[in-house]
Design a protein around this nucleic acid. Structure first.
Lengths: 214, 214
DNA sequence: GTCTATACGTGGATAGAC
DNA sequence: GTCTATCCACGTATAGAC
């Protein structure tokens, strides 16, 4: 038994791997899987091309690792809901947490968008499995709320897509948003404003009264 | 003066060019500018690679032509609005026409998405010029409606983004939508259902009463 | 662990035979 | 107008010197 953590060897790896992942997330997000080159990723990470391949094995493995990282962020965000919960509270938390994810991880959001845009070749299974189940479970609760008169009888799946798209937009179409609003970037106040707007319009649009029965 | 239209020469061009444009739209949409290869476009169009380049000149020119085609579809859809118009009518027409564009030209919508996703290198000018003006003009009318009490005082730009994102979603995230809803494709009834849902929720969410003052 | 050199495919684009 | 052959830059990936 020697030292459990060889200092230098793993040290450099621990320093370089995150750099590579972050650089790769950006490049893949902008140019898609095929359009991204290991060369470009290496430059963005400030490393030689061969080092990148040394650390991550292959372009494909790197891409998959990034998708998995994004999906784990996604999963960390979600918690289960039940019919007993307050619709207004749940819907608002749903919108806000999705918007936070968009904001804190715009590159990850764009990576996901690029993957789905190309037909989701790497995420087919996830979409048709885990994610579908998650949507169905949630949709069932929305329907029960409708039956109890706590919200309008809207299609729950379209509602989930509405929330996803409306929030996702500020990552995926950032260039458009910035171009039209004539900004360099969106700040705290902008995000607060957008999020409040979305909560307000979507909750009211579904006939959900914010907080408390009266 | 000879024949004004040389029959064979332009005939083949008229037959091949549309094929190339349609094939290219698909490939660019899925893989982005860099990720798309002339080879792949040629295969999709059923032509040799060199023929494609013969007709369109270069990959870059082809891409620009496609973006222009999409922007002209977009412009064809839009008409001006004034304060005197009925908010409900205008908003509903806005949502419906955008959804129709999404539906009739999903590849074009995805092409646009891929372009914006990579930072809109080819559309910067358009976004910061024409499109910004268009949004501002529209936003001004929304604001006036709010002042007159015809709708809630919501941020008009966020509202436009909401409509864009919610409709765009069904082209850009088609793979996700199909995966989750367990469908091969969305049919007429699905699109009607989604469009009605969006009109209902967004109009109600903005405090716009559908049709007629009372 | 790092980096240069290299193998070998594919990229966009063009020349020239037909 | 069509298509094969070809140019050269760049793509991923690996071998091997340090």
């Amino acid at each position: 038994m020697t030292t459990p953590l060889p200092p230098d060897a793993t040290r450099t790896r621990l320093r370089n791997e995150p750099r590579i992942l972050d650089a790769a997330e950006n490049v893949f997000a902008r140019h898609g899987y095929r359009g991204a080159s290991v060369q470009a990723i290496a430059e963005a990470a400030g490393l030689p091309k061969s080092n990148v391949l040394y650390y991550v094995g292959s372009k494909r493995k790197l891409y998959v690792a990034l998708l998995e990282r994004m999906m784990s962020r996604w999963n960390a965000m979600l918690d289960d809901i039940s019919v007993e919960d307050d619709p207004a509270e749940v819907l608002e938390a749903f919108i806000r947490s999705k918007m936070t994810l968009t904001r804190t991880h715009p590159e990850g959001s764009r990576l996901f968008a690029a993957e789905v845009l190309q037909g989701a070749p790497f995420l087919q299974e996830y979409l048709r499995g885990e994610l579908r189940d998650w949507v169905r479970q949630r949709a069932r609760v929305f329907e029960q709320w409708s039956e109890r008169g706590l919200m309008d009888p809207v299609d729950p799946v379209w509602l989930i897509f509405l929330i996803w798209s409306a929030t996702q937009h500020y990552a995926d179409f950032e260039a458009q948003v910035l171009g039209i609003t004539d900004r360099e970037r969106l700040d705290d106040a902008d995000y607060r404003s957008v999020t409040d707007f979305l909560c307000r319009v979507i909750l009211k649009g579904c006939g959900v009264t914010p907080r408390g029965p009266q």
